[in-house]
Amino acid sequence: MSLVVSNLKASIDDTPILKGLNLEIPKGEVHAIMGPNGSGKSTLSKVIAGHDDYEVNGGSVTLNGEDILEMEIDERSRAGIFLAFQYPAEVPGVSNANFIRAALQARLPKGEELDAVAYYKDLYAKMDILEMDRKFTARAVNEGFSGGEKKRNEILQMMMLDPKFCILDETDSGLDIDAMKVVAKGVNSMRSSERGFLVITHYQRLLDYIQPDVVHVMADGQIVKSGGKELALELEASGYEFLKEPALA
């Protein structure tokens, strides 16, 4: 499944954020986006997921040729897009197990019931990969979770929903090294020739554990530079000063 973003323009409250962004991520590849604060990285992830706060002013986003901007938020998810949130919402009173179950149930044809036994077996197996305590299933979604627990929970949902294309929005923020390794293990277990990833991060260190095929630099709502994984190391060493050079300004 390839994700193609063409000349995407989006704004929030009439302030343009994405200014003609182009990006193509073929299936099987992991692309990372780095960039300074305010460059529009999280906006890109939310626009792809369909957040109502953002208005799309032009361009297109297709998943394997299918225009997803015309779809409702939930349709995009069922079509195969998964966004791991930077700040996942808390949903009091709804257990994790029931939440993930509802998400899987929403993917079944009407009248078909999810096999509960198989569901829990699968859930527990994936929680084991992420080193999550079984008690997580009964806890309310993200309520009272530490930053690390929330991020693990995002990856657990991603593994359970088996999406075609995954966007990780600053999944490393708030994670210590050990937690980051566990999260990376979960992500790496899902890498396949059929699935694409877009990893948004501020820091190169996540990319030590989730090795990208391509690194993009985003600034002022556009992709301004692309390269191999060594680009991330360069950015780590020298920062984003080069963006201020006249040639790129």
Partner: peptide, 25 residues
């Protein structure tokens, strides 16, 4: 938005959240 982003329709999401709001008590 969070529930919709997991494939749950907006109407179903509202019901799930409202039920959780109550069940929490």
């Amino acid at each position: 938005f969070y529930l919709q982003a997991r494939g749950i329709s907006a109407d179903a999401a509202r019901q799930i959240i409202a039920e959780g709001f109550c069940a929490d008590v």
